[in-house]
């Protein structure tokens, strides 16, 4: 019995020593480091006394456990831990106490302080994992570089995240019905007798790859933490457009036609509101070759009606720069971390 007591004392001393000599990796915190240390001394003392009493009780239980067989020891130790958890002894146990009066006291006195290191991790888990999740992106956008027509659009996108930083997907921006011709066109036509040749968009669609090279987090007023990332996107797609007839509008009319848009580079910023909902802002360029309305009008009704002469022979490289804001929703809403904390 004496031996077992000695062994128990040694084990306890060893544990305390290991805890006290926490290395930098353990990230143990001293009471002085907590912001609420000052002015809470009384509450700390109360909590400290109570905690001390409960530790003594737990120590007694442990001492009793060492007097029995190994099996009994395990059972008694578990009981002692339960006692410790129920009775307090640890800050977490105290905070989880069912006693409302005790909880109220704790609230009024501020958080109780204790030197605990096991709840702090050197490497925290990524806030929201994306691999193997599907992302749905409704958005609203407008063009930044066309002073003649405001190409407002609504969009939808779908991404599948292969890894946490790489996704494949597709998106569609719908323009028809949302566009508005600028007054600049009228002003230029009247003042300079110059016909600007605007283009209408019906929709644009693209297959995309998304990569997230930059991520981080923001603290708002020291209370909220927002995870965010910046992403790069590229892909290939189509623009369905048509010229607005201004040179010979009495005769000419144009149907929408497809144009290939390549690269479609984009840069975006995504802020996580929850683990499945984000807001994003994106700047994207859709380069494509556009056939503008021809400035030449054939002589005679037959020549005017000849559709071959309605469009420029050469194509014009157009950069459709779109700024978008929207939401992203991740499915499934929940996910499991591969590794424990």
């Amino acid at each position: 019995m004496t031996k077992s007591r000695i062994v128990a004392c040694l084990a306890l001393a060893l544990c305390m020593q290991v805890s006290a000599n926490a290395t930098a990796q353990d990230m143990s915190f001293d009471l002085e480091e907590t912001e609420s240390a000052g002015g809470k001394a009384e509450a700390s003392k109360k909590g400290g006394k109570k905690g001390q009493a409960k530790v003594e009780a737990a120590a007694d239980a442990n001492a009793e456990a060492t007097t029995d067989t190994a099996t009994d020891t395990a059972a008694e130790t578990e009981g002692a831990e339960e006692a410790g958890a129920e009775g307090g002894g640890s800050l977490i146990g105290d905070l989880a106490a069912d006693d409302p009066a005790e909880a109220k006291e704790a609230t009024e006195a501020g958080p109780k302080l204790s030197e605990v290191s096991e709840e702090i991790y050197a490497v925290q888990q990524v806030y929201a994992l994306r691999n193997n999740r599907i992302e749905l992106l409704p958005s609203f956008g407008f063009t930044l570089n066309d002073p003649f027509v405001t190409h407002a659009n609504i969009g939808a996108g779908l991404n599948y995240w292969i890894t946490n930083v790489l996704a494949v997907g597709a998106n569609l921006n719908w323009y028809q019905g949302l566009e508005k011709e600028s007054e600049l066109n009228f002003h230029v036509r009247r003042s300079a007798r110059l016909g600007t040749r605007p283009t209408e968009f019906q929709f644009g669609a693209s297959l995309n790859m998304t990569y997230v090279p930059v991520y981080g987090k923001f603290s708002m007023f020291g209370r909220y933490i927002f995870q965010w990332d910046a992403y790069l996107m590229g892909g290939v797609g189509v623009m369905r457009t048509r010229p607005v007839p201004v040179v010979d509008p009495q005769i000419r009319s144009f149907d929408y036609s497809y144009k290939i848009s390549i690269l479609n580079p984009a840069i975006g910023l995504r802020v996580f509101l929850t683990k499945w909902l984000t807001v994003f802002a994106e700047l994207r360029t859709f380069p494509y070759l556009e056939k503008l309305e021809s400035l030449d009008v054939g002589l005679g009704e037959t020549a005017r009606a000849d559709k071959k002469g309605w469009l420029d022979k050469d194509s014009t490289l157009v950069f459709n720069v779109v700024a978008s804001v929207g939401l992203t929703v991740y499915f499934p809403f929940g996910f499991d971390y591969k590794l424990p904390k």
Partner: peptide
């Protein structure tokens, strides 16, 4: 709710 309760978001 653990030992960091009441602590600043960033140290």
């Amino acid at each position: 709710t653990g030992p960091l309760a009441g602590a600043p978001a960033v140290r």
